[in-house]
Computed example of a mutant assay.
Amino acid sequence: MTTSFTIQPSKRLAGLTSAIFTEMNRRKREVEARGEREVIDLGIGSPDQPPSPLIMEALSHAVRNPDNYGYPTSEGSLRFRETVTRWYDHRFHVKLDPEHEILSLMGSQDGLAHLAQGWIDPGDIVLVPDPGYPIYFASVALAGGEVYPLPLREENDFLPDFGQIPEEIRRRAKLMVLNYPNNPVAATVKEGFFEEVVAFARENQIIVAHDQAYSELAFNGYRPPSFLETPGAKDIGVEFNSLSKSFNMAGCRVGYLVGNREIIRPLAVIKSNIDYGIFLAVQEAAVAAMEHDMNHPGENRNFEVYEQRRDVLIDGLSEIGWHMTKPKATMFVWAKIPAGWTSEDFAFTLLEKAGVVVIPGNAFGKEGEGYVRIALVKPVDVLKEVIRRIKESRILSP
């Protein structure tokens, strides 16, 4: 029995799309169903390694504490916020007030999804990187605002050119989202860039929200800076960070927002109305992770795993004719595809011929056309198999 349902969902959903991701999953299932080979999925950037035994033990201990089963507070426990304060000082030499300048989040995506709702009204403009992580665009749609894309192009080191933003857009813009080290393009900032951001934001009265989820996944001695290290940054900005990638705690859903208290406050109000915060046992595990990192610098060798994978994959692909730049950070490779392909056609054909999933670049915005994103989420031996399959597929042949 079927019934007609004529009530329509919110128009806000029209601004949300996961079409390419959904299509890749559908095609992956079709290839798997044929049973010809196991599909190697380098699409989603989910860490494939577990947290350290110390973190898991802290979580296990906290789960057995009956005091941790009451409602937590949406702002995060004081112990959690004080530990974030100390970790930010240890890592970036940034001073924070745990009472007013830190807000706990159920993963940084929680805050990225809701920040615009606290600041953006219909007609307000948000400056969003293109290519960019999809939640940046979606958060603006949910808030009823308008996106103005900031093109990230290879010829400009994947940094936005503020001089190209029209005066009218500058006047109407209320919020700007940035992300370095970047997902999906794996770019990092050059010296002086954040100073340029601060000057631009001050001149035009624009809030800056910097997503720094990959601050601890950097290679060859590179140490990504915090936006808040820049003089004046805290006057106009905030920064998101997460324990998902740095400590392999993605499933725990624990992150935070730090910076200007006035910018944080509307998000805190929203969250106090929609959730009760992070399970206290998870917060205790996060505290253990950060405390161990401060007391034993360098023991979190997570980045070395990704560095080795990066080198094996890129060196191997280069040997068979697919050349790409080695990123200094993140768990991704942003790869320009051979001429004559669209991003979608290349990704679909690679899945069909080689059984390898990558994400078409246009899933992240118009400027992503001509690229694919490859996630370094498989062991070295599997990446070597990826190289072999791509070679045998002859997809790189002219």
Rank of each mutant, 00 (worst) to 15 (best):
P50I: 10
R301A: 11
E168F: 01
N260E: 05
A335E: 07
P166T: 08
I40G: 04
P184E: 08
M294N: 08
T188W: 03
R301C: 05
A363F: 10
V177R: 06
E23H: 04
E216T: 05
G45M: 06
P9Y: 05
I270D: 12
A354N: 12
I169C: 01
E392K: 14
Y71S: 13
H210W: 09
G111H: 11
R310M: 15
I20E: 12
V377W: 02
R223N: 13
S393M: 11
F348T: 07
V254S: 12
Q164S: 15
A14V: 04
S46T: 14
L280K: 14
Q205F: 00
G251S: 15
M290E: 13
D235A: 12
E82M: 12
E191H: 13
I207P: 00
E75Y: 04
K378E: 12
L376S: 07
L142K: 13
G255F: 10
G251M: 11
R81C: 04
Y276R: 09
Y133W: 10
A285T: 09
L112R: 14
R310C: 06
N179H: 15
L127T: 00
I135V: 15
V94W: 03
Y71P: 08
V31Y: 08
F279N: 08
K336H: 06
G340H: 03
A268W: 01
G145V: 01
K336S: 09
V39I: 08
H292V: 03
N362G: 00
S46R: 15
L13F: 15
I274M: 11
K28H: 02
V357L: 06
T342F: 08
V185T: 14
I274T: 11
I165A: 01
T17H: 11
R81I: 02
D48V: 03
E304T: 14
L383M: 14
F158R: 07
E191Q: 14
D311T: 11
L257K: 01
L350M: 14
E36F: 04
T6G: 09
L317C: 03
L317Y: 05
L396T: 01
K326A: 08
D275M: 09
N156G: 01
D110P: 00
G370Y: 10
D110Y: 03
R389C: 10
S242G: 07
I374V: 12
